[in-house]
Simulated scan of single mutants.
Amino acid sequence: MSTPPRRPDAARNRTRIVEAARAALAESDHVHLNEIARRAGVGQGTLYRHFPSREALLAEVYRRDVEELVTAAPALLTAHEPVEALRRWLDRLVDYAEIKHGVLAALEPAAWQDLVAHSRNPVEDALGRLLDAGKAAGALRTDVDARGVLQLVAYLGRLDRDEWKSTARPLMSVVLDGLRRRDAER
C-alpha cells in the first residue's frame, strides 16, 4: 500500500521546515523546534504533523543532504571535466559535513549511528564514480579509492564550529591536490 501524495501546500511546508532546520544547524548544534517553525513560517502543529519528534526532523535533514550529495556526482560529471567535477563535489561535501556535524551533535548516538551506516555506501559510491572518471582521464592518482578519501576527510568532523569556515575548505583543497597525478597537467 503506497502513501498518498502530499497536497502541494503540505509538501511546500515540509520543504520549508527542512530548509529552516538545515539553516539552523549550520549556525548552531543547539536546534530548537520552535525556532525552526518560526523560520519556516509555520505553526508548531504543522511542524509536528510532518515531524513528530526532533530526531525525525534532523534525520530528514541528514537524509536529504545525503541524497543531494549523491545525485550531484553524475550531474557534475556531465557538466564538468572530472577534476573540476570532483572539486565541486568536495565543496558540497564540506557543506554536507557542516550540517552532518550539527545533526550528529543533536541526536542520540544510536540514532546517528543508524543514519551514518545507511549513508556511507551511497556517498562512497558517488565519490568512487568521480574518482574513476578522474583516473580514466589520467588526471587523478590510481592508488586511492573512495573509502580512503572519505577516511581522510573524516577529520573535518573534528573541527570546532569556530574554525570551520577558515579551515574546512583549505583542507579540502589539500586533499584534492593530493589526489592529482603528479605528472598530470593542472
Rank of each mutant, 00 (worst) to 15 (best):
Gln44Ala: 12
Ile99Asp: 13
Arg38Gln: 10
Thr142Phe: 07
Gly43Asp: 11
Leu57Gly: 13
Glu55Leu: 12
Pro82Lys: 14
Ile99Trp: 10
Ser119Glu: 03
Ala59Leu: 03
Glu124Val: 02
Leu47Ile: 02
Thr46Tyr: 03
Ser53Gln: 09
Arg88Pro: 01
Asp132Ser: 07
Asp143Met: 03
Lys135Met: 14
Trp112Cys: 10
Ala111Met: 01
Arg64Phe: 06
Leu47Gly: 05
Asp132Tyr: 03
Ala126His: 00
Lys135Val: 15
Leu127Phe: 01
Leu86Lys: 08
Tyr62Asp: 07
Ala37Gly: 05
Ala79Ser: 15
Asp132Arg: 01
Leu77Gln: 07
Lys165His: 13
Ala117Met: 02
Val123His: 02
Trp89Leu: 14
Leu127His: 01
Trp164Gln: 02
Thr46Met: 11
Ala146Thr: 08
Ala73Pro: 07
Gly102Cys: 02
Val94Phe: 05
Val83Ala: 08
Gln151Gly: 15
Glu163Leu: 13
Lys100Thr: 12
Asp162Met: 11
Leu140Val: 04
Gly128Cys: 01
Gly128Phe: 01
Leu77Ile: 09
Leu150Val: 04
Asp145Pro: 04
Tyr48Met: 05
Thr142Gly: 14
Arg147Glu: 06
Ala106Arg: 00
Val83Gln: 11
Ser166Ile: 13
Val149Tyr: 02
Glu108Met: 04
Thr167Pro: 09
Ala59Asn: 07
Arg120Glu: 10
Val61Gly: 11
Val83Pro: 07
Val123Met: 09
Ala117Leu: 09
Arg129Tyr: 02
Asp91Trp: 06
Gln44Trp: 04
Gln113Ala: 08
Glu68Asp: 14
Gly138Ser: 10
Ala137Glu: 09
Asp145Thr: 01
His80Tyr: 13
Thr78Ser: 15
Ala154Thr: 08
Gly134Thr: 05
Arg64Trp: 10
His50Val: 04
Ile99Leu: 14
Glu55Asp: 15
Glu108Cys: 01
Leu76Gly: 08
Pro74Ala: 06
Ala59Pro: 09
Ala168Lys: 10
Arg38Asp: 10
Ala111Val: 07
Pro170Tyr: 06
Tyr155Ser: 15
Arg158Lys: 13
Leu58Val: 02
Asp160Ala: 11
Asp160Met: 04
Arg63Ile: 05
Ala79Lys: 13
Arg158Thr: 11
Leu93Asn: 15
Tyr48Asp: 05
Thr142Asp: 15
Glu81Ser: 14
Arg129Ala: 10
Leu107Ala: 03
Leu131Trp: 01
Leu69Met: 08
Ala85Phe: 06
Tyr48Glu: 08
Ala133Trp: 07
Pro82Thr: 14
Glu55Cys: 12
Leu152His: 03
Ala79His: 09
Arg49Ile: 00
Asp132Thr: 08
Ser166Leu: 14
Pro74His: 06
Glu55Phe: 12
Asp65Ile: 08
Trp112Gly: 04
Glu67Cys: 07
Ala40Met: 05
Gly138Phe: 10
Arg88Val: 02
Leu90Ile: 12
Leu104Ser: 10
Arg147Lys: 12
Ile36Ser: 00
Arg92Gly: 14
Ser166Trp: 11
Ser166Ala: 14
Thr167Glu: 15
Tyr48Trp: 10
Leu130Tyr: 00
Arg161Asn: 02
Pro170His: 06
